[in-house]
Amino acid sequence: MNQIANLYQKSNKEEKLIIGLMSGTSMDGLDIALCAFKGNGTNTEIKLLHFKTADYTDVFRKQVKSIFSKREVDLEMVCLMNEQVAITHAQLINAAIAEWGYRNDQIDFIASHGQTIYHAPKSLHKREGLPNATLQIGDGDHIAVHTGIITLSDFRQKHIAGGGEGAPLAVYGDYLIFSKENEDRIMLNIGGIANYTYLPGSLDAAKVFSTDVGPGNTLMDQYVQQHFAGLYYDKDAAIARKGKVNEALLKELLNDSFFGAAFPKTTGPELFSLSYLEHAQKASDTASIAKEDVMATLCRFSAQGIIDSIQRVLSDMHNPVLYLSGGGMHNPLLLDFLKEALPQITFKTTSALEIHPDAKEAVLFALLANETLCGGQIYFGERVNVPSICMGKLSLPK
C-alpha cells in the first residue's frame, strides 16, 4: 500500500490511536499521551489509555536551554537541536509504546507540539512591518522516520498563517472535549505561562476564547534555578512559604501593558524573564530583599495575573466551575492565593472530567491532529486571533 493510501485508510478508521506529545517551557520532560478517538468535532469521543512524562537527561535539558528564549543564539546549535529534539522524542515514544505493551504499527498517528524555543507575536517584538512569529523545534520527519508512524507537527504555524498569534491553542480542543451545556467553565492551565479557556454553558462557539494571562511557573522556576543550587523548581512552595510578599515589588511586576491588553492575548518567557524581575526590583528598590521574599512575591504575581483575568469574565458566568491542569496546580501556595481571591468559583482538576491534569495539553494536540485528519472547521466567529482552521503538518514515515 502506498503512503497516501495508508494515510487515507488510517484517517477513516472508526477508532484511531493517536499519541499526543507536549514539551513545555519548564523542560522537565516529554508528556506522552496515548488516546483512542472516535468521531470528530462536537461528536468526538476520546479515551486516555496511557500517559507518562518521560524524563530528559541533564545534558539534553542543558542543550535545549542554551537556545531557549534568547534573542541571540548559536544558529548552528538551533539547526542541530531541531534534529536532536526529534530524535530524542522518537526514542522516548518508542520506549513508551513498548512499555505499554503495543507495537509501533498499532499506533495510527503521532501529534507533536515540538519544543518552543522562541515566541514572538507583534505585541512582544514590536518591530514595525514584521509579522507574528513563533518557533518550535523537533522536526516531524525525523519523528515519523524513527518511529515508523505518520506524524503531525508544527501546529502553531497554521494558526499564525490564519491570522492568529500562534498561541494559545487550547480553545480548539477545550471547546470540543470539555464544553457542557448549562455549566459555565474555566479551563485553567498553569504551565510556564498560565492560560485559560472560557467555555460558556450556552455552547456558543463564538463566545469561547483562550488567552494567556501571565506567568505561571516560568519566573519562579528561573529564579530557583539561578539562586538555589540543584533545584529546578520550588517543590510544594517550600521556599516561598518561608518568605513574605513584598507589595512594592508586586506592584512593579504588575506594571506592564500586557496585563491590561484585551483578550485573547499571548506571551512567553521572552517577556517574563529574570531581566523583567531585575528591572522590577530596581524600580521598586527591592533588590536586597530576601530570596524567600522574592519567591513569595513571584508566586503572588503569578496568582494575581490569573485572578485579575478571571475576574474580567465572572460577571458573565453563573455558578462557574474552574478545572485545573498543568504543573502549577501542584503549588499549594499558588492555589491558596487563587481560592482566597475567587471564593465564588468551584475548583476542580480535569481528573473530574476523566483527563489526567498533567496529560491535558498532550491530549489536546492529539485532538488537533484528529480534527485535521477527519474533522471540519469549527466556526469560532470572525474574531481577531481565533482563526477557524485545522492545524498540523504531515510527515510520512517512508
Rank of each mutant, 00 (worst) to 15 (best):
I307M: 04
L271D: 02
S26M: 07
Q84A: 13
V78A: 12
G20D: 06
A205S: 15
M22R: 05
L364Y: 12
G381W: 05
L250W: 06
E247P: 03
Q9N: 14
F301E: 03
L199M: 07
M295E: 10
P264M: 08
N195K: 06
H89E: 03
Q344A: 13
S351R: 10
L338C: 10
G230H: 10
L231Y: 08
S123T: 09
V363Y: 07
K16D: 00
S388L: 10
D31E: 09
E371V: 02
H50T: 03
A144G: 06
A161E: 12
G305L: 12
D55I: 07
I149W: 03
L314C: 13
S210A: 15
S273W: 11
K339G: 02
D141Y: 01
P264W: 08
T53M: 09
G268A: 09
I97V: 15
R71N: 12
E340Y: 06
M187I: 15
L49Q: 14
S302Q: 11
L80R: 12
Q115S: 12
T197S: 13
G201A: 10
I117M: 02
C374K: 10
A86W: 02
E15N: 13
K38R: 13
S273Y: 04
L34F: 04
A33H: 02
A111L: 04
V245G: 05
A86H: 02
D358H: 09
T211C: 10
K122N: 07
R383L: 02
F51G: 00
H330V: 09
R61E: 08
G327I: 08
A229W: 01
V73I: 15
D58E: 14
N246F: 00
D108N: 12
L396S: 08
G392E: 03
E340A: 11
P343V: 10
F337K: 03
T57D: 15
K242Y: 00
T349V: 11
S325P: 04
Y276K: 11
F60E: 05
L34R: 00
A33R: 01
V208W: 07
S66Q: 08
A36K: 14
K70V: 01
S388T: 13
F301G: 00
S388I: 05
G39Q: 09
T297W: 02
A262V: 14
H227L: 07
A283S: 13
K47E: 15
A237H: 00
A359V: 03
I46V: 12
G216Q: 12
R71K: 13
P320V: 09
Y232F: 12
G230Y: 06
F60S: 05
T53L: 05
N195H: 08
